[in-house]
């Protein structure tokens, strides 16, 4: 299958290792991955902050870039939620039936990364190895908009050596909410404090999710407090494989998620 990766704007700039991990996982499964450099953003930040007019050209651009893609895979559930929940509404708001038609044609081909693996490809064992204690944070959009339910957990349970620990109050928002974290910084911080307490109480070494936005927020506090817990996108965990056969490690040399790199190295060494 030819898969077009929509990396998401903030992953592109801040978390390239997640995109590299997604590419590695998909290619390992024998799929052809393409990256359309014209891509930018889904428009979510503008839309959710109330800049609907300003979001329109952004989402039009998205639809144009991916109009002829066979499959679009996105390692960010909130972007997929934006596309699924709001694009048709945006077309209606702009009285643009042509855009609505294009969106309708595109929607069935857009998938969140883990949803694509499990629901579309029917795979829940990626042959990954990640020997750490991990807690999973079900981000709000992945749980309440995409209803990923057990999907990410199924993937994690098949990872060799991974010790999945429960996270208390997992369904409660971490307090990110895009510009909410700036406009209501105090409330956002209080919500984050609760989330971080649950993460620390879980005993996990790694907190994972299908959205780097939430992870950036949670890790922002974990790092500020100089805890030992690291945040790693689920795609990066799945990319840590047992049968790594040389070549450039896509996870190195990113400085922020050194743990993932370390794990990959451990995995490689174990496999040899």
């Amino acid at each position: 299958m030819r898969i077009s990766l929509f990396i998401a704007c903030y992953n592109d700039a801040l978390f390239p290792q997640t995109g590299k991990a997604a590419v590695r996982v998909l290619e390992r499964l024998g799929h052809q991955v393409e990256f359309r450099p014209a891509q930018t953003c889904c428009g979510q930040m503008h839309w959710n902050t109330g800049y609907l007019r300003e979001a329109l050209p952004i989402l039009r651009h998205f639809v144009r870039v991916f109009a002829d893609a066979e499959t679009v895979v996105v390692p960010s559930s909130s972007c997929v939620a934006m596309i699924r929940d709001h694009y048709l509404k945006a077309a209606a708001m702009d009285n643009d039936p042509a855009l609505a038609r294009e969106v309708k044609a595109l929607l069935p081909r857009v998938f969140e990364f883990t949803e694509f693996l499990v629901r579309k490809l029917g795979i829940d064992d990626l042959g990954a190895r990640f020997t750490h204690k991990v807690a999973y944070h079900p981000s709000c959009h992945s749980a309440r908009s995409l209803h990923l339910d057990e999907i990410p957990l199924r993937l994690l349970r098949h990872v060799r050596g991974l010790d999945l620990v429960p996270l208390a109050n997992a369904q409660e928002c971490c307090g990110f909410g895009g510009t909410f974290a700036l406009k209501n910084a105090d409330v956002s911080s209080a919500m984050l404090a609760d989330k971080v307490r649950c993460v620390l109480n879980s005993g996990a070494e790694v907190i994972t999710a299908v959205d780097n936005s939430c992870l950036m927020h949670i890790y922002g506090s974990l790092h500020r407090q100089r805890t030992f817990v690291r945040a790693v996108h689920l795609a990066e965990i799945l990319a840590c494989s047992e049968d790594e056969s040389g070549g450039e490690s896509v996870l190195a040399p990113d400085q922020h998620y050194a743990l993932a790199e370390h794990s990959a190295r451990v995995a490689t060494e174990t496999a040899q």
Binding site: I7, N11, D12, A13, L14, F15, P16, G19, K20, F35, P37, A181, L182, K183, A185, S188, S189, L192, A193, M216, H217, Y219, G220, S221, H223, R224, D254, Q255, H256
Partner: peptide, 21 residues
């Protein structure tokens, strides 16, 4: 508002699109 209670990772030297290219 962000950095009062949270750190932010710096932008890595190479973006995904640059790495791809």
């Amino acid at each position: 508002g962000w950095t009062k209670t949270r750190d932010l990772p710096a932008l890595p030297a190479e973006s995904f699109r640059a790495w791809w290219r």
